[in-house]
């Protein structure tokens, strides 16, 4: 059963005391325990960490990676991988920026950009599901080609936008909360609903669990695969819009290596790279762990060279703890 945090809490609350239910919830959500521990440790070292401003700042910085990682979760649940998200982000960002710069209505520019992202993702999916190319290779090609296409399209120069309503998507606050955070929260709810409540979500888990069984059950594995890459492309485009809006320009090198943070968030969230197991709530937590870590290392004045090493070490530690739990079961 593709479980998710909320239905788990509902179940556990029904058959145990409140304390027990909390314990069981934490046991099922080890990444959440990790996040809480990490935050506790960081707040000991840095008094500026646990302030509303800083926490909102973390959420805002995390929202882009979280959105990409949610799309990535769909792909990884089918035992695939999408390395092209950073390039999709850059290309769609550039297209969006040029539309906005040409004074296109946001009602046109934004849907067009999202559709473009979904189409680019679907193209990856077609190469994988119909062409039979390994997801790693197919999306590696997508990553390279789209990066090149972005450089061609932008002529290697940033495209600047001069539009306040567009900037608001990345920079404005509503009820004191940054807009990107609200967008990420909305995306999370939609993804959660799709994966846990919709037929398509079941099929995603089924394809990752066993493709052959899924096919024999009369389900089109091809369509499911194309759809998950389209979702990933759509989410990368959404992230591209937010990033471009916030910077008021599209950088041709934007999103470089973003796929790695997204994959790390998914894995930290407990989703199996072998497919079929995992859930979107974990991905959100995984993205937050990475966000808190980045923020903490900045607050503690760790040089950016050491930051990468520290980040890698924490990810390795988390995954080792998780895989130990699995083999001992």
């Amino acid at each position: 059963m593709p479980s998710n945090a909320t239905s788990r809490t509902a179940e556990t609350a029904a058959n145990g005391g409140a304390g027990k239910a909390v314990l069981r919830f934490l046991a099922a959500n080890k990444s959440l325990v990790g996040l809480i521990l990490l935050m506790a440790v960081v707040s000991l070292f840095s008094p500026n960490f646990l302030t509303v401003d800083n926490l909102l700042n973390i959420l805002r910085q995390t929202s882009i990676n979280a959105i990409i990682a949610m799309g990535m979760t769909f792909v990884i649940l089918t035992a695939g991988i999408d390395l092209s998200v950073g390039s999709v982000l850059a290309f769609t960002g550039a297209v969006c920026a040029s539309l906005v710069a040409a004074d296109a209505s946001l009602w046109v520019a934004l849907p067009a950009t999202l559709a473009l992202g979904a189409a680019l993702g679907a193209a990856n999916g077609v190469v994988i599901a119909i062409g039979g190319v390994q997801p790693f290779i197919a999306t590696l090609v997508g990553m390279t080609v789209l990066r090149g296409a972005t450089l061609v399209y932008t002529d290697g120069r940033p495209i600047t936008t001069m539009s306040d309503p567009f900037w608001a998507i990345g920079g404005e606050y509503v009820f004191g909360i940054p807009v990107p955070v609200l967008i990420a929260a909305f995306a999370f709810i939609v993804c959660w609903f799709v994966l846990s409540q919709m037929r398509f979500g079941r099929y995603v888990y089924a394809v990752g669990g066993n493709e052959q069984v899924t096919r024999l059950a009369g389900i089109s594995v091809t369509r499911v695969k194309i759809a998950v890459y389209a979702v990933s492309g759509l989410m990368a485009a959404l992230a591209g819009i937010i990033l471009t809006a916030r910077l008021e320009s599209a950088q041709p090198t934007a999103g470089t290596a973003y796929e790695l943070d997204a994959i790390a968030a998914v894995v930290l969230g407990g989703t199996s790279l072998m497919g079929g197991r995992g859930y979107i709530f974990g991905t959100l937590i995984g993205a937050l762990i990475i966000g808190v870590l980045n923020n903490a290392l900045n607050l503690m004045d760790v040089s950016s060279y050491y930051q990468m090493i520290a980040k890698g070490a924490v990810i390795l530690l988390a995954v080792l703890v998780d895989s130990r739990g699995k083999t001992n079961r």
Partner: peptide, 29 residues
């Protein structure tokens, strides 16, 4: 084992898999 059931998933998940069309309202299970 190879093509009958999706092993780590539940009885519910497996039994309903092929019949979700009938067990859904629109796209929602």
């Amino acid at each position: 084992k190879a093509d009958g059931l999706i092993q780590p998933h539940s009885i519910r998940f497996n039994m309903a898999l092929g019949a979700l069309g009938r067990l859904s309202r629109g796209p929602v299970v």
